[in-house]
Design a protein around this nucleic acid. Sequence first.
DNA 1: AGGCAGGTTCTTA
DNA 2: TAAGAACCTGCC
Length: 281
Amino acid sequence: MHSIKVNDDFDLKKISDSGQCFRFNECIDVPVDDPALSVFSVAAGDRHLVIKDMGEGRYELDCSGDEYENFWKNYFDLDLSYSDIRARIDPEDDPYLYNASEFGKGIRILRQDPWEMLISFIISQRKNIPAIKASIEKLCALAGKEIYEDEHIGTIYSFPTAQDLAALTMDQLSSCSLGYRDKYVHQAALDVASGAVDLKAWEKLDDDGLMENLLKLFGVGVKVANCEILFGYHRLNAFPRDVWINRVLEEHYADGFNFEAYEPYNGIMQQFLFFYGRLNA
DNA sequence: AGGCAGGTTCTTA
DNA sequence: TAAGAACCTGCC
């Protein structure tokens, strides 16, 4: 058990519902002393965390202080001030973005694993969020290993490694409701497991080089590549354009969005626009 | 019951 | 090079 106090924007509910992560859920079945408290289950790679929101910026984590300092603090990107970045939005200059940022205040861009994000966003194409979560859940249960068990939360499995997925048959893969994406996942697993694709080494590439390499992957187009760059490589200026964002840009930014004003954090603005646009549809 | 969901690939001109 | 169709599956 480890307690922390966070002074910056930090809203677990919004993060879990922001569409950047698929194994981060509120545990509505976990009993709490005070109904105002909320509990979340977070799975990342082969780690799992139960984090309880105690109110007023205080949180209780079921991990050691060491594990918090060495992993979760970084995972939640707690060294970056999101309120400072939000403060760059001028309500006079861009009232829509300002409203979106007020609405989405508390969202942070998690530092997630490139491999897990690559597979997750390959799966995401033409699926809604519940369907994405269901597929990933099945994949983890089938090919991951058990990492956590609780009577209320259930069993949590690690995200399968490339080797884990490469070892699956196509029949096993398609049993995870991947649909036509099964072959994309299979190929990505082979590429990474064989070493032909080295996601870790790609961290050293510049933005253009990274994009170029990602687009060569089977089943990865511009949108998935941008999600990978933003969420998997934590390059906060990436701006994925999906149907929701395109809708927002068409309806509210006919004269163009002011990307120059928010560099190098346009990806955070994208999250605000996405979250606001999707929940107000 | 038909259309659509956080796209990408394949085909055609 | 650029549209347009096809694609799995589940859920409204």
